[in-house]
Amino acid sequence: MPVAPPRPKDLALNALRAFEAAARLGGFAAAAAELGVTPGAVTAHVKALEDRLGAALFARGAKGVQLTPLGARVLPEFTAGFDALGLAVHQLRAEAAPRVVHIATLPALAQLWLSPRLPALRAQMPGVEISITAMEAPPNLKRAPYDLSLFYGDQGRLVAEDEIFPVCAPALAARLTAPADLAALPCLIDSAWAGDWALWAAVALPGGFAPRGPVFSLYALAVEEAANGAGVLMAHGALVAGHLARGTLVAPLPQRVRLAQGLRLWSARALRAGQPVEQVARALLA
């Protein structure tokens, strides 16, 4: 009779994924956010994996978790493996739906920079579907289901340098002839880029400046309020270019500060010439 020994049970893929994410990101909460599950689910997956192995992968303490020597030794291979799996999934999606291009970007970039360019992109590439997802931080394109990411940073090809400078409605510009005049005007503050005022003031107002005015959690809303005459906004050049061109916003002061991280477009995989993703990327870079 043929011998058919029982096959050892495989380790659960979800448990391995939970371990790799928690180990790479340094905690169960961060892993849960990336995987779209609860921290409790990550904890349960990792505990089940450790029980199955009969060895600890994390040392638990009052200040969180740390990798054991075993966990640290195996992490690089799991990270490389899941990266490779993610890229293979990207390839599968691209082959199955080659006319769909998924872009992840900041909400402000989606509304103020990318949206005005979509009609021209659609006209250039009839039949190509461009999907936009707005998020506050760049996704891990080796794992997330996006073809391109458009964010301020240092990864990817440069689309535009990032300069900050004050802008306001034309009616307010007459009251802003020198940096010191800002003390008498409301200054619009974006909560995500609250430090922009200090960066600019360090160059234009070395004596120090504390902006006073309303705070916005949506940069696009702050731009609209600046155009409505509500105050002076510390603008990112690429995001207000349309308003400056139309004259709804003006930049009355000459002082500009160039930031180290520019607007960049990135893809986790090589783009093949002539494919929709490569065409969209080339159009955006142009």
Score class of each variant (00 low, 15 high):
P119N: 01
P119V: 06
A120W: 05
L121A: 07
L121W: 08
L121D: 05
L121I: 11
R122P: 01
R122C: 02
R122L: 07
R122A: 13
R122E: 10
A123R: 13
A123L: 13
A123M: 08
M125V: 05
M125G: 01
M125S: 04
M125H: 10
P126K: 04
P126G: 01
P126H: 03
G127L: 06
G127N: 05
G127P: 09
G127M: 03
G127R: 04
V128S: 02
V128A: 00
V128I: 10
E129I: 14
E129M: 07
E129H: 09
E129S: 12
E129C: 09
E129P: 01
E129L: 13
E129F: 03
I130S: 01
I130T: 09
I130N: 03
S131F: 03
S131H: 06
S131I: 08
I132Q: 00
I132D: 02
I132V: 15
I132F: 06
T133E: 15
T133D: 14
T133H: 14
T133G: 04
T133F: 12
A134L: 10
A134D: 07
A134S: 12
A134V: 11
A134Y: 08
A134F: 06
M135A: 13
M135Q: 14
M135E: 12
M135L: 15
M135C: 14
M135N: 07
E136A: 11
E136N: 14
A137E: 14
P138K: 12
P138W: 09
P138M: 07
P138S: 09
P138F: 10
P139L: 05
P139Y: 10
P139H: 07
P139F: 08
N140C: 10
N140D: 15
N140T: 12
L141H: 10
L141M: 06
L141G: 11
L141W: 05
K142F: 14
K142I: 05
R143Q: 13
R143E: 13
R143G: 06
A144V: 09
P145V: 11
P145T: 08
P145R: 05
P145N: 04
P145L: 07
Y146M: 00
Y146L: 02
Y146F: 15
D147M: 02
D147R: 03
D147F: 00
L148D: 04
S149H: 11
L150M: 13
L150S: 06
F151K: 03
F151Q: 03
Y152I: 15
G153W: 00
D154A: 12
D154E: 07
D154H: 01
D154G: 01
Q155G: 02
Q155L: 15
G156Q: 04
G156P: 08
G156N: 09
G156S: 04
R157H: 13
R157N: 05
R157L: 15
R157E: 15
L158W: 10
L158G: 06
L158V: 14
V159A: 14
A160S: 15
A160N: 14
A160I: 13
E161A: 12
E161T: 00
E161H: 08
E161P: 02
E161D: 13
E161G: 07
D162A: 13
D162M: 06
E163D: 12
E163F: 15
E163N: 08
E163G: 09
I164M: 01
I164P: 07
I164G: 01
F165D: 08
F165E: 12
F165L: 09
P166V: 06
P166W: 04
P166E: 10
P166A: 06
V167D: 03
V167A: 13
V167N: 07
